[in-house]
Design a protein around this nucleic acid. Structure first.
Length: 492
RNA sequence: GCUCGCUUGGUGUAGCCCGGCCAAUCAUAUCGGCCUUUCGAGCCGAUGACAGGGGUUCAAAUCCCCUAGCGAGCACCA
């Protein structure tokens, strides 16, 4: 009994995120991811599924993935991004209960707009953006504001029918033109876009809802109870509140978080910036190790769970936060260290002839798990070691898993010393590979590619296997090519 | 300019709503030690923070006010 109580307490203490507000008022916790499919995800985007997915697990809730793709022009959807984003969500370990695209739901938004017009909640406006903005900043209505519902209704129909070009007509929500916060005054709900939507299912639409309208309608239609979103949308709830009031709806609970920055990258955390760098060849693609993207970490063999743990650790505060990559690495190390087999990889190896000693070495596959056996490495007449690991003339070094050698006249002479020279006489232990029987390997890192040679056992590992190159770090084997094996460096 | 929000060590976070148990939690980081045929893991230890100023109170990280800094919105982007 005592123990159970303690466990229960522990569980509460281990709660990864603070409680959502007012959970008891709802039968189920229902949330949504609302990605813009204008490209594959950068690392900041991973925060959304990490936190919302974790809340879903905490409350045994329900989660929608809704693609907010209602801008065919400025933030033009990338047809491949829908699938890529879903696959990133899966990699992070989550599975939406339902997936929808806003561009499939345009008729629904029209329907609600017509109702809103009838309620007196909206009017069509042909002011150009600049002159409306000037009036609005003064708290003065434009001449269109007093239009009757019937005129608005017929002009909105003309918008839907595509009778206006971009910029000629919008539908505005009638809020409070003198509201003390200028951001809330009579905002645009629908506008004309000349560019067809990239999805063929939606290419005929010219009259598109703005995010605040679309998202507001959808959140209600899908009975979303808790919204978690960025501070850039901190006025959205207040804006949408006017529409909710017209309809007599209850607004969901809402949480805002700040922006995430990630150290360790030179590249800005922005879909458009990364897109540009790829287009002009500075990055090899979305999974280039130097790219701050979800796909990049995946290719480096970092577990989605590690990203989620690190993101969840940031909490949900409204202030901007810096995520240290080292914390992602620390989370990942904990997940993979136990299962990653050990291998020797020598960068820029220098060859040293070996004089005497056994014909082969047998270091353990994993030092903490004897049962996994040993790696038989044939030694031959010489070895490669890293330039920094060559001891001064006359000094000894311990070839890890093989034995002690003395560096004499450019040759490694086997000395047969016991392991106590390592413990008591400060002989360094270094990794090595046979000079003959090895495999060339290219290690792709955030700082560029490193070339070297790996022990022959590498052939036994396939794509996606994660190993630890001793004294270097963890890496994911990507592929075996004829002339070399390619691996991606994860972290130390 | 108008409006909204934020500010705990290198980084993140707990505590703040309901002031005292906070000479401030945990993680990461860094440094040192032990162990070790890895610069990994593990174990031990150290480092390091309440933005500043006023006020209320017996008592303030916690409540109030001011200042500073940072951020966001005021888009026919999301």
């Amino acid at each position: 009994m005592r123990l159970e109580e303690l466990d229960a307490e522990d569980e509460e203490d281990d709660q990864p995120l603070p409680d959502l507000p007012n959970v008891d008022a709802y039968e189920d916790v229902r949330m949504r991811l609302a990605p813009n499919p204008n490209g594959p995800w950068h690392l900041g985007s991973a925060r959304m599924p990490a936190v919302i997915g974790t809340y879903k697990q905490m409350y045994d809730g329900w989660m929608l993935c809704r693609f907010d793709d209602t801008d065919p022009e400025t933030k033009r959807p990338d047809p491949n991004a829908y699938g890529e984003i879903l696959s990133s969500i899966g990699y992070l370990g989550f599975d939406p209960d339902e997936v929808v695209k806003a561009s499939d739901r345009v008729e629904t938004y029209y329907e609600h707009a017509r109702t809103l017009i009838d309620e007196g909640g909206a009017y069509t406006c042909s002011c150009d953006a600049a002159s409306f903005s000037a009036l609005k900043n003064d708290g003065r209505p434009c001449p269109h504001r007093e239009k009757d519902a019937e005129t608005t209704r017929s002009e909105f129909k003309a918008m839907i029918d595509g009778e206006y070009a971009a910029g000629e007509m919008v539908l505005r929500v009638r809020t409070d033109i003198e509201h003390k916060n200028p951001a809330l005054r009579d905002w645009v709900a629908f506008r004309m876009v000349d560019t067809p939507h990239p999805r063929s299912e939606a290419e005929e639409y010219r009259c598109w809802p703005m995010l605040d309208f679309q998202s507001g309608i959808d959140d209600h239609e899908f009975e979303i109870t808790h919204i978690v979103r960025g501070i850039d949308l901190q006025d959205s709830a207040k804006r949408q509140g006017f529409v909710y009031d017209y309809f007599g709806w209850e607004y969901p609970e809402v949480l805002h978080w700040g922006h995430v920055q990630i150290d360790a990258y030179d590249v800005e955390l922005s879909t458009s910036t990364i897109k540009e760098l790829i287009a002009n060849g500075e990055l090899d693609g979305w999974d280039d190790p130097r790219a701050p993207t979800v796909a990049s970490l995946q290719r480096r063999g970092i577990r989605g769970e590690a990203i989620v743990n690190a993101m969840v650790g940031l909490g949900t505060s409204t202030s901007n936060v810096d995520l240290a990559m080292s914390s992602v690495y620390a989370e990942n190390r904990e997940l993979i260290d136990d299962e990653a087999d050990r291998l020797f990889f020598v960068r820029d190896g220098v060859e040293k002839t070996l004089d005497g000693g056994p014909d082969s070495a047998a270091p353990p596959v994993h030092p903490d798990h004897e049962a996994r056996g040993v790696r038989e490495i044939p030694v031959g007449d010489g070895v490669l070691v890293e330039p920094d690991d060559v001891p001064p003339e006359g000094q000894r070094v311990w070839l890890k898993g093989y034995g002690p050698v003395r560096y004499t006249d450019g040759v490694f002479e086997f000395t047969g010393d016991g392991i106590d020279v390592v413990r008591e006489e400060d002989v360094d232990v270094v990794h090595w590979v046979p000079a003959e029987e090895n495999v060339p390997l290219r290690l792709r890192t955030m700082d560029g590619d490193e070339s070297g040679h790996v022990e022959p056992g590498i052939g036994g590992y396939g794509s996606d296997d994660v190993v630890q190159f001793e004294r270097i770090g963890f890496a994911r084997i990507d592929r075996h090519e004829d002339e070399e094996t390619v691996a991606y460096f994860a972290h130390p």
